[in-house]
Amino acid sequence: MFKPEPFVTRLAFVASERPEAQEARERLAARYGDVDEDRAQVVVALGGDGFMLETLHRHIEAPKPIYGMNRGSVGFLMNEYSEDDLLERINAAERAAIHPLSMVAVDTRRGQHRALAINEVSLLRQTRQTAKLRISIDGRVRLNELFCDGALVATPAGSTAYNLSAHGPIIPLDAKVLALTPISAFRPRRWRGALLPHTARVTFEILEADKRPVSAVADNFEVRDVLEVHVAEDRDITLTMLFDAGRSLEERVLAEQFSV
């Protein structure tokens, strides 16, 4: 795991393609200096939540703390943008350690596709036909048939993203559980999903795959025409995000549950 030095001074600035993000990067680099990402103690990501996920994925092989500032449209994972006292803010920041999901998807040609997801792994119908899924947990069938638009497994960090839009539960970061959430379930209508221990291994089998094709998406990596998908938390990988003092990710997740 990456071990921070006593005081952070070496920053690498990265930005999305949005003009305001690129302009911010130029100003901040001129003010605080800018080193290569491999030499940086902290990477500062300028953009929205999507760019934060891209940055985390890019550093997944050699994780470093990522401090995001919002220069995009959605900024739940980002700090407020300010050019002042940046080093002081980063050195006083609170850390959120997260573990990604590992997805193994088998397509109709029996090809295997592997990917990691920081937010969620989603299964989505590809046509007008509803998806028909069988769901097993740790090798035991728990739901024999689910007719739906899809289903997803979300991490605590991703529980406020697509999972929340699908009416899934918001999960505190230290809860050690995953959310299994249906997307527009048609039958059984009353099934609203489940909370699973973070050690659970989830298997989706796509029934009638030729008639009801399904794609699998791990964050922004998509596999089409899948037959089965296996999802589990990867505890060997730890990613670190930095948040301003008093505005930790834990606090944001808690506050989101009381938003109206």
Rank of each mutant, 00 (worst) to 15 (best):
P63R: 09
R134L: 05
T240I: 15
W191E: 04
L164T: 03
T55F: 06
D225Q: 13
I66D: 00
E80C: 06
G50R: 11
N119S: 11
E256I: 02
L124A: 14
R125C: 12
P63W: 02
F7D: 09
S184C: 15
T130G: 09
F2K: 08
A200F: 10
R125H: 10
F258G: 04
Q22P: 06
R10Y: 01
A232M: 08
E61Q: 12
M78S: 03
G158K: 10
G158T: 04
H167C: 12
H167E: 08
T238G: 00
R212N: 14
A30Y: 09
L86H: 00
A151N: 08
A93W: 07
F147K: 09
A24G: 09
R95M: 00
S122N: 10
E208W: 06
T160N: 11
T127S: 15
F258C: 00
D138Y: 12
A161L: 03
L152A: 08
F13L: 10
A15P: 03
N119V: 08
L124I: 13
T238R: 14
F221Q: 07
A185L: 00
D149A: 06
L28F: 07
H113V: 01
L196P: 09
D85Q: 14
P197A: 04
P197S: 09
A96E: 05
R114P: 08
V214A: 06
R189A: 12
V229A: 06
L195T: 11
G193E: 03
F221S: 01
R187W: 05
I135K: 04
M241I: 13
S215W: 03
V42D: 05
P197W: 14
A216K: 02
D85F: 12
L180Y: 02
V104R: 14
Q41I: 00
M1S: 13
S82D: 13
R125T: 10
H113N: 04
T108V: 14
V214K: 05
V35S: 07
V35H: 07
R134N: 12
E37D: 05
